[in-house]
Write a protein that binds this DNA or RNA. Structure first.
Length: 753
DNA sequence: AAGTTGACTTAGGACATAAAAT
DNA sequence: ATTTTATGTCCTAAGTCAACTT
């Protein structure tokens, strides 16, 4: 059963990959971290002074003598220089005819009145048809401004035609392609945005109406008998301090509370909400005892769980009511689901990994913090009684409905639409089309960066090696992050010398690069992979005379890289490589692993394996479920029992058969037959269990959902389902089907990524 | 050019619910 | 019917990338 690991089947050249759960990671960093901090700081200083020096004008480097990493500013300087000298190489084909197009603009007339959830009468139309190759050129680019409007209008016309033709090819499930149909199965009102026109000028909507956010309820003070306890003394806290204390109490089961930074940040912020007396008294978190509070909440949860069926139903109904009232908006006459219609509740900030801000107080969001975005002529959402919005604006170049500033990072938070919405779907579609476009020119781009490994310009060489990693290993771009504001994680461009180790030879392979760093969400990336000699030598050079904390690619930033990519292909950025490589890998793996004579369950297992190959490539990990071992064991036990059952059944079947042979009466014939059937049935069950075990084991620390939701062109899966007779429900659950409705509707089994 | 910020995608874990086992 | 386990949803942090500011 759980015998085979997927690795054999599925792993491609990326070399070994080990997963480490979150915990491991922590450990992993533990020792180096503290020092790191210091170092990085020093580094900063160093950079600063270096900068001065440098500015005195040398253009050194380029020649490998780079000695230190230059600070960002510095970096840029150098970069700049380089810029003029070169630039040429890539230029070659930069310009493919840009455009493309499809899409036209929509003219929804503001149509006054109530937008009520009426389903539009589609005006059909065209649009980029995803499947055929022509699509690739379809870049739905947004034509800039009204200045261009006329042009685009003209253009549009032509485009229309072009685009239109591909259309007929499709849908064969009884619907006629242009959307007019819907006779049968489709619930008349599913809105197919993909059959509508699109905006091409950056406009996101013409009309937008919604009810605003749902706020977290006001704080309700604890009952009087529940008290906080300081240094053995029970005391009632002032409401402000008490509320913050409850946030802590609710997190006590978590290991966040054992971390110093968390405790320090929490205590610091907590004090701000204390009265003078409290502040004077409560000086040490170690002397604080929140257990009573914690127990109170525990009891509450418990009580809630024990509620009667009717009462539970009541809260359920209430939630449903809120959803109906606030969970939808009307955008361009369509009723669309909102993803997050509630503001985030107050609490203690939980960053991932070693986040310097963990434990800080996240403030309650109030109407005064919220900016509302809706159309001018719609019914604006009303702030709660006595309150005001911070602002109401009418910006139809953005898709959000409400925004506020987060007090921890100072960044913006938004309320946006659900992934089944038109605005999200269009972007998704565009994303995959861009990736398919890359497919068409990836050879050229690869040839180019390989060529650039030889460039005599350091910047070009670094850029080429970085791009190679992004392509081959599916690394993220790696933007520069502000030090001290976030956990120390990196992506490709921000890799530091300490994150890789070069091995002239490792495990029999020449020129091996070993990566070990923390990426997004502090997920560890570990991989040892053989590279070409030229890459290896370049890396050695990039590392020369640098400290471990220095940037590996000191002449490259995501900006530089993306600008370069943009020249190679319109719309190309670093992340397109992940999308492309993920999708193409799925397609290949499916091709390789699926056999049409297998049964559906087996096919699904193979699908999951293909999916897993992608997840491994993209390093999508998860903590192994806490109950993993236990559940694996019970499953194993089940399998064992089933096995026994099987042998018993077989024995019986054999006997019955023999008996029947002896006396060929109808009765014996029947028993023999039914015994035989029992065997088959049990065999099937056993096989199913085995599959389950295998799948689960292989999935222990791998998260499939991220790639499935974000990186894999759904049309590949849809086509696979169709050609192998696997119901789509086996692959996508309801919300995934909603999210991918357009792809499910459009792709046929011929689809090729 | 460098730094900043806004908007949007990608991400894993927590939590709720459904389904299966007992 | 109750408990356990699997699955799906929610939540919001953490990225990417380009436009804007300085």
């Amino acid at each position: 059963m759980s015998g085979h690991r997927s690795n054999g089947a599925v792993q491609f050249e990326c070399g070994s990959w080990e997963n480490h759960s979150y915990k491991d990671k922590e450990k992993h960093r533990e020792h180096k971290k503290p020092r790191d901090h210091k170092k990085r700081k020093e580094r900063k200083e160093r950079e600063k002074s270096a900068k001065h020096k440098d500015s005195s004008g040398k253009k050194h480097r380029d020649k490998d003598k780079i000695k230190h990493r230059h600070g960002s500013k510095d970096k840029h300087k150098h970069r700049e220089k380089k810029r003029d000298d070169k630039e040429k190489p890539e230029g070659l084909d930069k310009e493919k005819p840009k455009g493309l197009l499809l899409v036209k603009e929509v003219k929804y007339e503001p149509d006054s009145d109530t937008h009520h959830l009426t389903v539009p009468k589609h005006k059909h139309t065209l649009k980029m048809e995803g499947n055929d190759d022509n699509s690739s050129d379809s870049k739905l680019k947004k034509i800039k401004t009204e200045r261009d409007e006329k042009i685009s209008r003209k253009r549009k016309q032509d485009d229309c035609k072009e685009v239109v033709k591909p259309k007929k090819a499709k849908d064969q499930n009884g619907e006629d392609s242009d959307g007019k149909k819907k006779a049968t199965k489709e619930p008349e009102d599913t809105y197919k945005w993909w059959k509508e026109k699109r905006y091409t000028d950056g406009t996101k909507w013409t009309t937008l109406e919604h009810k605003g956010p749902v706020f977290d309820p006001e704080y309700e003070p604890l009952p009087n008998h529940v008290k906080f306890c300081y240094n053995g003394e029970r005391m009632k806290l002032s409401p402000g301090a008490e509320e913050v204390a409850t946030f802590y109490a609710k997190l006590m089961h978590h290991d966040y509370v054992t971390k110093d930074i968390f405790r320090k940040n929490f205590f610091n912020d907590w004090q701000k909400d204390m009265t003078e007396e409290e502040k004077a008294k409560i000086k040490d978190l170690a002397k604080c005892d929140f257990r009573e509070i914690r127990d109170y909440f525990k009891a509450q949860t418990e009580a809630r769980r024990a509620l009667s069926r009717e009462e539970k139903q009541k809260t359920k109904d209430e939630n449903e009511r809120l959803l109906q009232e606030y969970g939808f908006c009307i955008m361009d006459k369509q009723k669309e689901r909102i993803a997050n219609f509630r503001t985030e509740p107050p609490g203690l900030f939980r960053g991932r990994g070693d986040h310097p801000k963990m434990g800080m107080l996240k403030l309650r969001i109030k109407p005064e913090d919220c900016t509302i975005n809706c159309s001018k002529d719609s019914k604006w959402p009303k702030p709660p009684p006595g309150k005001e919005w911070k602002e109401v604006r009418h910006d139809n170049k953005v898709t959000w409905l409400v925004s506020w500033a987060d007090n921890i990072k100072g960044s913006m938070k938004y309320i946006m639409l659900n992934s089944s919405s038109r605005v999200k779907g269009e972007k998704d579609w565009e994303k995959f089309e861009t990736a398919r476009k890359l497919k068409k020119c990836v050879d050229r781009i690869r040839a180019q960066y390989r060529d650039d490994w030889k460039s005599n310009e350091m910047k070009v060489r670094q850029r080429a090696v970085a791009l190679y990693f992004i392509d081959k290993l599916a690394l993220r771009a790696g933007n520069e992050k502000e030090e001290g504001e976030t956990a120390d994680t990196v992506g490709c461009c921000s890799l530091r010398v300490e994150h890789i180790t070069l091995h002239q030879e490792k495990d029999g392979e020449p020129y091996v690069v070993e990566f070990d760093f923390l990426g997004k969400d502090c997920i560890r990336y570990y991989n040892a992979i053989p590279v070409e000699k030229r890459v290896f030598k370049n890396l050695r050079r990039f590392m020369e005379n640098k400290q471990p904390q220095d940037d590996l690619f000191d002449r490259v930033t995501t900006d530089i890289l993306n600008k370069h990519l943009q020249e190679l292909m319109e719309g190309l950025t670093a992340k397109v490589f992940r999308t492309y490589n993920a999708s193409i890998t799925l397609q290949q793996q499916l091709k390789e692993l699926t056999k049409s004579r297998d049964n559906v369950d087996t096919k699904v297992l193979q699908y999951n394996r293909a999916n897993r190959a992608v997840a491994i490539l993209c390093n999508h990990q998860r903590a192994a479920p806490k109950t993993f071992e236990a559940s694996m064991q019970t499953l194993q036990a089940k399998i064992d029992t089933k096995r026994e059952q099987l042998s018993v059944a077989k024995r019986e079947a054999k006997r019955a058969k023999a008996e029947y042979k002896e006396k060929t009466t109808e009765k014996f014939r029947r028993t023999a037959e039914s015994k035989k059937k029992a065997v088959l049935r049990i065999e099937e069950q056993l096989m199913k269990l085995d599959l389950q075990a295998t799948d689960r084991e292989e999935n222990k620390q791998i998260a499939l959902s991220t790639s499935k939701l974000n990186y894999l062109d759904p049309r590949i899966s849809v086509a696979w389902c169709k050609s192998f007779d696997v119901p789509i429900e086996k692959i996508y659950n309801k919300s995934q089907r909603d999210k991918f409705a357009c792809f499910i509707d459009m792709a046929d089994e011929e689809f090729e990524f």
